[in-house]
Amino acid sequence: MSSPHGSPPPPSTPVRPSFAASVSRIYNLSFGQMLWSRRTVFMVLVVGGPVAVALILRMLVSMDLLDAGGVIDGRPVTIDGPVIFGLMIWGFYLSFSVPLLGVFYGTSLIADEVEDKTITYLFTRPLPRGAVLIGKYLAYLVCAGLLVLPSVMLVFFVVMPLLGGSIGAGFPDLLKDLALLAVGLAVYGALFALVGALFKRSLLTGLVFVFGWEPIVVVLPGYMKRFTVSYYLQGLVPHAMPQDGTVTGLVLQVLQANEILPSATVSLIGLGAILAGGLGLAVWLVQRREYVLEQ
């Protein structure tokens, strides 16, 4: 029997957005949130500090308080713009900013939503769970990149011409540094996205990895250092690793002499594997894990 007015229109079936569209939506949502959160203070410290130090150094040089030649611990050393820039890339960015940003943002991609008890709202939307993680990860990458890379650029132009250095001569190294930092942010972010998805106390795990495991293992002989990110980053870094005056003992000299840095190819393969493995496993975990929020 049919109705005199015809059959009622079928209920509209919700259109599930594609994975890429879901990623894009989450990215758009998260990018602004990340940029204008309390973390911005931390970000300003991380990216503004090196620029401030670079300006101070430039001021010292212009006031003739800093010259190229000198002696450290009885060793004659020559410091110029490229050397200072190399020191800053190592000291500020590769050893500090990139791993710390990776830990902070990477572990908080999911943990923040759990902590704020807002993950329910995200996971009840018709979006693949993996897209939520990937979208947030991309937002972190762009957010960190847009703040860290210009900071490096400013430091380069402030520091490089000091004490006889040349911007033109150092430009190829700058390109390598920028690429290296972008890769570092991507790899550390992926690794700690996995840590964040895997552990409840992910931040402590991340800090132990970055400031406990990596600095110790990377100077040990054998295969242990292959289980760090910094080992593979060192294989790509254009600046020679600066020697710390406090650790130039016989043991370290022998270790350095025997240390074999990975080739650029091995480094890229290693970093690629960590990136793909970390992100893939994180997505896999997020898709399967049941998040029970604490009341």
């Binding site: 400013l154 430009f171 700058l174």
Partner: peptide, 10 residues
């Protein structure tokens, strides 16, 4: 920065 660096390099 990249453009200036490139010009300086060339």
């Amino acid at each position: 920065g990249l453009c200036s660096g490139l010009v300086a390099y060339l």
